[in-house]
Simulated assay, not measured.
Amino acid sequence: MVFPEALIGGYPRGASFGAVVGDRSPAGRDEFLAYSAQAVTIPGPEVDQLCTLAIANGVHMVVGVVERAGSTLYCASVTIDDHGQLIGQRRKVMPTGTERLIWGQGDGSTLSVTPTALGSLATAICWENLMPALRMTFYAQGVDIWCAPTADARNVQLATMRHIAVEGRCFVLAANQFTRASDLSPSYATQNRDPAAVVCRGASVIVDPFGEVLAGPLVDDEGLLVADLDLRDVTRGKYDFDVSGHYARPDLFALTVDTKPRSVVIGLEP
């Protein structure tokens, strides 16, 4: 089961946190304080609750969270197996636009594919899916199921998900939030809207390694998309196109990835 970006902690759509270029307001700082209080630590009690839910329902889960590390927030995700074990964690490496005001940049230490009983899972958060080098980093590790927690509901998002499925010859599970204005936290100011107004329409989708849509897109409503995945289709697809294998041309192209954890003080890396 794949859940949207920032599901826990909240995606503060429409919030400004009192910021303009060159100035931040006291009220905006209070809003950030409240938003920070909604974030979670990894590991922590909220993640423990997710682990309990995974056991109770016998499912693997990829869940978007807002992570608090010290006083910095990260747009992150956790991967939990059906035994309730935290087996994977990601931090978004590049927040988009105004997200950079409230979320830090993740380092390369979480750019890893997670092996599971279901196959190898990669998680790319929102516009990370548009980063060719990040995609290649995951493809080279062998991806069966590409998980895309997102907040992007544009029509072009479907094209991106289908492209990744064909490019990586993997299944793609994209989960986006369906949100009304009334769902947004009262802890921070947002643009004035009718409480019933849809501020994010969803558009979750499941795609196979040949780019065929198996379920969705689910728009303008809450719901659960379900599909049976035949992982043998990953190998069937790579018969004629393996982007990190026989189609890669390493004699022409090379990608260097720094996966070391980064600390502000050398020697204090976790």
Rank of each mutant, 00 (worst) to 15 (best):
G168H: 00
S182Y: 03
Y139A: 15
S204A: 15
R169V: 05
R180V: 07
R135T: 03
N129V: 04
T160Q: 10
A227Q: 06
V213N: 04
R232F: 03
G216V: 08
V207S: 02
C147H: 01
V198P: 01
G142A: 06
D183H: 12
E167W: 03
D228M: 12
T235N: 10
R154T: 15
K238S: 11
N155Q: 15
A151G: 07
Y139Q: 13
M161D: 14
A148N: 10
L134V: 10
E212S: 14
R193K: 11
L229E: 04
A140Q: 05
F171G: 00
N176C: 15
V156E: 13
A189V: 14
L130C: 09
T150K: 04
G216C: 14
M161R: 05
L225T: 09
F210I: 07
A196H: 07
I125K: 00
S120T: 10
V226N: 13
V213K: 02
A196G: 13
N192E: 13
G211N: 08
L231V: 11
E222V: 15
P209W: 01
Y188D: 02
N155C: 11
H163V: 10
D194A: 14
L231G: 05
Q141S: 08
D228L: 12
A215T: 07
N155Y: 13
V156L: 12
D208L: 04
E128P: 00
S204K: 06
T190N: 04
L231C: 07
T150H: 04
E128Y: 00
G211E: 06
A122L: 07
D240V: 12
D233W: 09
D228C: 08
L218T: 05
Q191D: 14
N155V: 13
R236V: 09
R162W: 08
V166W: 04
Y188Q: 02
T123A: 09
T235Y: 05
P132W: 04
A174S: 15
R232E: 11
G223W: 09
L173Q: 00
D228E: 15
L173T: 01
A196E: 15
T235E: 14
I125F: 01
T137A: 06
T123P: 02
G119W: 08
E222F: 14
L121S: 10
C170L: 05
V219K: 13
K238I: 07
G119Y: 09
Q177V: 10
R169E: 05
E128M: 01
G223L: 12
A189G: 04
L218R: 06
C200N: 14
D208K: 02
F138E: 01
L231N: 05
P186T: 10
G119H: 12
D240R: 11
L231H: 04
R193Y: 08
T137R: 02
I206D: 00
D208Q: 08
